[in-house]
Design a protein around this nucleic acid. Sequence first.
DNA 1: ACCTGAACACCGTTCAAGT
DNA 2: ACCTGAACACCGTTCAAGT
Lengths: 224, 224
Amino acid sequence: MAPEKSRRERPAKPALTRDGIVAAAVGILREDGLRKVTMRRLAQELDTGAASLYVYVRNTAELHAAILDELLGTIPSPPPEGGWRDRLERLLMAYTSMLLEYPGLALSALVARPSGEHYLRLCETLLTLLAEGDVPSERRAWGIDLLLQHATATAAEHADEDSPEDWDALARAVRDADETTHPQIAAHAADLLTGRPAQRMSWGLQVLITGIADTAVPPERTLT
Amino acid sequence: MAPEKSRRERPAKPALTRDGIVAAAVGILREDGLRKVTMRRLAQELDTGAASLYVYVRNTAELHAAILDELLGTIPSPPPEGGWRDRLERLLMAYTSMLLEYPGLALSALVARPSGEHYLRLCETLLTLLAEGDVPSERRAWGIDLLLQHATATAAEHADEDSPEDWDALARAVRDADETTHPQIAAHAADLLTGRPAQRMSWGLQVLITGIADTAVPPERTLT
DNA sequence: ACCTGAACACCGTTCAAGT
DNA sequence: ACCTGAACACCGTTCAAGT
């Protein structure tokens, strides 16, 4: 690691490596957000040309995926107190919180299925917790997919970076909903707009965990 | 079999309207995919300059949202046979199928909370179905959020447009998982990679519906 | 093998000027 | 009020040429 991080003259241009590139990318992410993590900006930071990066990274999507896995390694594993459901919920909350710190990253996680070291470790832990809860074996794999998808999507919904404008538009639309044409929306307007995010997230996870524990996999069709 | 491609192909330049712009945008979406629905390309299609569009559309995100609502209007409401659970599942499947036809659109749906006419109608129908199932009133609003999020996220995961490359990488990582460091992954490798999408989606929806019907909203904390 | 500058083919958005 | 050309400030990716 370079001892000085002054943005003045870099004393000697460090050799390019994949790890160095990813580390620099994480730096840009923390400072300026994912949308600034571009090949050109990254190259500038590393004092080289954008084309040089393509020796180590296939494309921008792969770069984002590498960043994601790096950050998955920073999730603290919650203390082993409490039952499996509690620990499961806390771990997924920690995962979501991490994604929420970096708007836009959740979208990458959703589109580019991760497959890095830290992602596998997370899956391993999740599978272990479901096993501890005596969730039938066949449902564990699909279950963690569902749980991770929910956590990721929840973070992705807040990827706006800015603009509560969409939310405003929705709030207006819900409130203006005609009681005769949209009776259900009118009746549930308050709940539809309720913003207590932690409570909602917690309920969502409990719904999933309960559902996973209680719902059998449907019979496979047409195996002849 | 276009007889002429001359610049006089369009007989008279139609006046710009928001509806006309959105309609043209949907056309580009169907033909070339969402990533080609850009202000510049759209302007070209409408025989004008990109700047002119900003009179009718705030920005690209709003344009995408308008497209989404337009397409929500094309979802056929499934026949009223079967119980509320079946109809709920079929409607959400139809929603997902529509999104899957237009890769990338699901991502817009996730980030930019829709608030258009057709979106409200869909919510209304979903709320009615949950009410029919005697789901307690307080859970209905949060429930449809969960269901729509799941359906949208499932479609978004397939937004790759191309490149089964990510999936390959994951498959390799799972298969290469060391049995001693990743025993759970090794044990569940088959299920983790199982691809039967319809069966998985159906199970996911049933998990959610069951969970919503069975899970009480947690008590509100710290109101004292 | 690695690195580079330059080029290709695009973007969103703003703005002064016209009608 | 609506429309426009031009400009600003960017993108990802490829490629021939260098080392």
